[in-house]
Computed example of a mutant assay.
Amino acid sequence: MSAMRFDHYIIRPLAENDLLPYFEMVERNRPRLEQFFTGTVSRTRTLADTQAFLADIAERVQARTYLPYVIVDEATGRFIGFLDLKNIDWSIPKSEVGCYVDAAAAGQGVATRAFQVFCAYCFAEFKLRKLFLRTHESNTAARRVAEKAGFAVEGVIRCDYKTTAGEVVDLIYYGRLG
């Protein structure tokens, strides 16, 4: 897995030794992530929790069942976003893709550009035939990012996700073929 570049950012695989900058990014964005990044929020409450979470992620990367990446500002070294491939089905091959950016980078086009670069990389590097994402109707930013990256609405999956608050919600399913 190699790094990607755009503007003055690098997208690279998340590593176990990224503990502190990863934890700090999640901590800065915890209120924004709480409802729809349940696993991340629940497994990163402390630095020790986060270290165990990253060790678990490293095992999943080794097994090729989960592939996480961070968006890094080249000038500052600060983590300003996260992208991942999850629910990977190598037999098709297809994967769900996830993304969030730091609140300080929101609304500047960083998520859109990073997502476009990342999707192109995933199709070329992993020879995926399909990428998909699921998002709640209220997440207009994610919906815009998906649509600008060539994803189309394929439908609504009813009662598909349990939020951190315990509410079971419908999700919009977007897909893009490679």
Rank of each mutant, 00 (worst) to 15 (best):
R5H: 15
F6Q: 08
I10G: 01
I11W: 03
P13F: 08
A15G: 05
N17K: 13
D18Q: 08
L19C: 09
L19R: 01
P21K: 03
Y22K: 01
Y22H: 14
F23V: 08
N29L: 03
N29C: 07
R32H: 15
Q35T: 14
F36T: 11
F36G: 12
F37S: 07
F37D: 14
G39F: 06
R43F: 00
R45E: 09
L47R: 13
L47P: 09
T50Q: 06
F53P: 01
A58E: 07
A58Y: 00
E59V: 09
R60T: 08
R60N: 15
Q62C: 11
Q62P: 04
R64S: 15
R64C: 09
T65R: 11
T65Q: 13
L67K: 00
V70K: 07
V72A: 07
V72S: 10
E74G: 11
T76E: 06
R78W: 12
R78H: 10
F79K: 06
I80H: 00
F82V: 12
L83V: 00
L85C: 07
K86A: 10
N87S: 15
I88R: 04
D89C: 14
W90H: 15
Y100T: 02
V101S: 08
Q108W: 09
G109M: 05
V110P: 02
A111Q: 02
A111P: 05
R113N: 13
R113F: 04
A114C: 14
A114E: 02
F115Q: 01
F118S: 04
C119A: 13
A120K: 11
C122R: 13
A124Q: 10
F126I: 00
L128E: 02
K130E: 13
K130L: 11
E137P: 12
S138Y: 05
S138I: 11
R143H: 12
V145C: 07
V145W: 01
V145S: 10
G150V: 06
G150D: 09
A152P: 00
K162P: 02
A165Q: 10
G166R: 04
E167S: 07
E167D: 09
D170K: 04
L171R: 05
L171T: 10
L171P: 03
L171D: 03
Y173I: 12
R176Y: 05
L177K: 05
G178V: 01
